[in-house]
Amino acid sequence: MRFLLIFPTVFILVTTVFVLMRATGDPITASLGGRLTQAQLAERISAAGYDRPILVQYWEYLTQIARGDFGTTISDNRRVVDVLTTHGSATLELTAYAIVVALVVGIPLGMVAAYFRDRWPDAALRVLAILAYATPVFFAGLLLKLVFAVGLGWFPVAGRASTNAEIEMKFDGAGTGFYLIDAISTGNGEIVADVLRHAVLPATALGLLTAGVFLRLVRTNMIGTLGTEYVDAARSRGVRESRLVRAHAWRPALIPIITVVGMQVAMLLVGAVLTETTFEWRGLGFQLAQYLTVRDFVAVQGIVVLMAVVVAVTNFLVDIVAALVDPRVRY
């Protein structure tokens, strides 16, 4: 039964966006007001149908979304769906990298903290985790950029790939939008390296925040499992403490990670908006910031609706996966 809540949730999200966006008036005045005369504005408004009763527009909006049509942007006259598909893959790629960073950094450190619980490595790691939470991703990004890109010159300053690599990938006809896949399909090692080098800093900036969350979660769960009877039994057989952590306790401690990865998607998408702006990573977040600047609220509405729905659906899927993985979870 609980799973059915996904439908009202998506409906409410979509409606909330509509109500909020239209509470200010129509998007055409918001975008072009002051640049066109009243008569021109009125003409554009009626051409786009914004002068009809609000309920009619709402119905049209719902049916369009149901058909996967998000309208046309005002500022550069692209179909919002095209914007979403072109730039969505970039955001997805960045988010995936960030999750990898978070898992690789967060889980081992969480185990270390649990192993050294209440001693100094634990204390230091916990403080670091809080620090990771308190640092805005864009500031972390700027710092990384300052030190590793501008200062040391190890990594590129911005973008997803160098121009040459992008041209070569285009030329090769690889068009998934996921640069790593495209690069691998060219079979050129240099391009793969180039793409990866571009990804390091943004992925680290975005991943560290989530790594802090994972660290604390793994630590807590690990300490919990280390206190269970079967671990006690192993301990009494003389198994060393470090092996208890590595071989006995980690599996049950990681189950909650599945749930949390799902819940982190909302956080990561928001973080991606900010990280992309910092690194000129041309994904949805970068586009969103651009459209916000030119006050193109049709595009903003499309991107926000998509992100909200993605988050809702992910949470829904995670609930199902959690129920499948852990028989104790029943709805």
Partner: peptide, 26 residues
């Protein structure tokens, strides 16, 4: 309750952006 849950699931910064557009136009 249903509305609160739905809004709770909304990515916070995006919601704040929408609200900022409504309240001040930017």
């Amino acid at each position: 309750v249903v509305v609160a849950d739905a809004i709770y699931a909304f990515p916070s910064l995006l919601l704040a952006i929408l609200a900022a557009i409504v309240i001040s136009g930017g």
